[in-house]
């Protein structure tokens, strides 16, 4: 099972390095890690995806808490949430295949963001499964280049993530 961890961290130089160094040192296997701004300028937000079959997500949470710059961590896998990944795909496309590719992209509610004589760049946002099947659908046309942002996530409803006050086992050391 995939665990999605949301971490609010201080927006300071070197914090990403501390987190990455922790994962390397403890031998944690991470599927993806994204960092970005939040509604508060002094705080960045990390979304970390852990494959629980290889790494114990609870251990990741506890070790993240040991970093002084990590403010709060929450495992949101069990909560109803919006999970998104974005992919850019550059695929082979000539006059013959172009209409079919465009049509398929529309079926996935993706976008064509660049058109060149021999290729197209497609953009798709969605949950991992959707992205994966889109990639599989495009593969026969010839994928020239691909990039993914990695997962970002947010729980549904009005209470914000990662504001959980340290308590009991989630306490900070």
């Amino acid at each position: 099972m995939k665990h999605i961890l949301v971490a609010r961290v201080e927006n300071k130089p070197g914090v990403l390095n501390r987190v990455a160094s922790l994962f390397r040192r403890r031998g944690f296997n991470i599927d993806s890690l994204t960092v970005g701004e939040t509604e508060v300028p002094e705080i960045s937000r990390m979304t970390i995806v852990v494959d629980a079959s290889r790494t114990d997500a609870t251990r990741v949470v506890h070790n993240l808490y040991k970093l002084v710059n990590v403010i709060a961590v929450e495992d949101i896998s069990e909560q109803p949430s919006v999970v998104r990944d974005l992919v850019l795909l550059k695929v082979n496309a000539d006059a013959r295949t172009r209409p079919e590719i465009i049509q398929l992209t529309q079926v996935f509610r993706g976008k064509v963001v660049d058109v060149a004589p021999e290729s197209l760049i497609l953009e798709l946002t969605g949950e991992e499964d959707k992205i994966r099947s889109f990639i599989e659908v495009m593969r026969p046309f010839g994928i020239l280049e691909m990039v993914r942002t990695g997962i970002v996530a947010m729980t549904r409803g009005s209470s914000p993530n990662g504001h959980a006050v340290a308590r009991g086992n989630g306490s900070v050391v």
Binding site: E10, V68, I71, A72, G168, N169, S171, V172
Partner: peptide, 15 residues
């Protein structure tokens, strides 16, 4: 003041 460092803990009574 360190927002990410709170070494005090509360012991859960059920434990």
């Amino acid at each position: 003041e360190l927002p990410g460092y709170q070494p005090r803990t509360v012991i859960p009574p059920e434990d």
